[in-house]
């Protein structure tokens, strides 16, 4: 028989096949496995159940489990694709994929639109932006008078709300982002390019083996 290589996959309960996840995302199989090392460390930080709960997510972000943060909660809700109150490995990889430097711009725009459309009405409304702005001011311990906050909102909606109906729809958001690309800066994580060097231990736990047959 000739000697050639094929992939043998050892299934580990609790997470999706790295080969399939790699085929659905911008990550290679090795990168998916390196992400599993990160996932394992976050998902076992409080309860070792192979799932990331809200508290574990906050702990990983802030190194503080009790720090309530509107934006971290919003990100968690978007990562929790199946709305189970926890993030499984498939959710984690597919969500982080949007943050990959090579991910389509459209996906990043969609993610930010959903992030800021907190009531899921299909539009970003003024009261939502005000709530987020106040949360940001609290977080950064910056004090601004209510008139100043209203002035920022006026300016923002004057710029973004082209049809002046008091809310920002998907196409207005796309238009605003194209004029202000820095608004998408949070959507690209250069770390994702170097994930295998950040978590080299994936090599020892690899589920995908090269075997000679």
């Amino acid at each position: 028989m000739g000697c050639f290589h094929s992939k043998v996959i050892k299934q580990v309960p609790g997470h999706e096949d790295p080969v399939i996840l790699a085929s659905q995302t911008a990550f290679t199989v090795s990168e998916v496995e390196a992400l599993f090392e990160l996932f394992k460390s976050i998902s076992s930080s409080l309860i070792d159940d192979g799932l990331i709960n809200r508290e574990e997510f906050q702990l990983a972000l802030f190194k503080n489990r009790n720090k309530e943060n509107l934006f971290a909660n919003r990100i968690f809700d978007l990562f929790d694709v199946k709305q189970k109150g926890v993030i499984d490995f498939g959710d984690f990889v597919r969500s982080l994929n949007v943050f990959h430097p090579n991910a389509p711009q459209e996906d990043k725009i969609d993610f930010t639109f959903k992030l800021y459309d907190m009531d899921c009405t299909g539009c970003i409304e003024r009261h939502e932006v005000k709530q987020m702005l106040i949360a940001l001011l609290c977080e950064s311990e910056m004090k601004l008078a209510d008139e100043t906050v209203e002035a920022i909102l006026d300016k923002t909606f004057l710029d973004a709300d082209v049809n002046q109906d008091g809310k920002i729809d998907r196409s207005e958001w796309q238009n605003l982002v194209s004029r202000n690309p820095s608004l998408l800066k949070i959507m690209t994580l250069p770390y994702l390019r170097d994930i295998t060097t950040t978590f080299p231990s994936f090599v020892f736990n690899s589920e995908v083996e090269e075997v000679a047959t």
Binding site: L38, I42, A60, L61, F62, K63, N69, L70, F71, A72, N73, R74, I75, L96, F99, L115, Y116, V129, M132, L133, A135, L136, E139, S140, M142, L144, T148, A151, I152, L153, K155, T156, D159, A160, L176, N180, S182, L183, K185, I186, L189, Y191, I195, T198
Partner: peptide, 26 residues
């Protein structure tokens, strides 16, 4: 930059809660 001259989303996007790079910091 005075906040009033900034777009609200520019300010919001500086939130630590939106900075996922801290997930990768060991």
């Amino acid at each position: 930059i005075a906040p009033v001259t900034m777009n609200a989303f520019e300010l919001i996007s500086t939130s630590q809660g939106l900075n996922l790079s801290s997930l990768f910091e060991k």
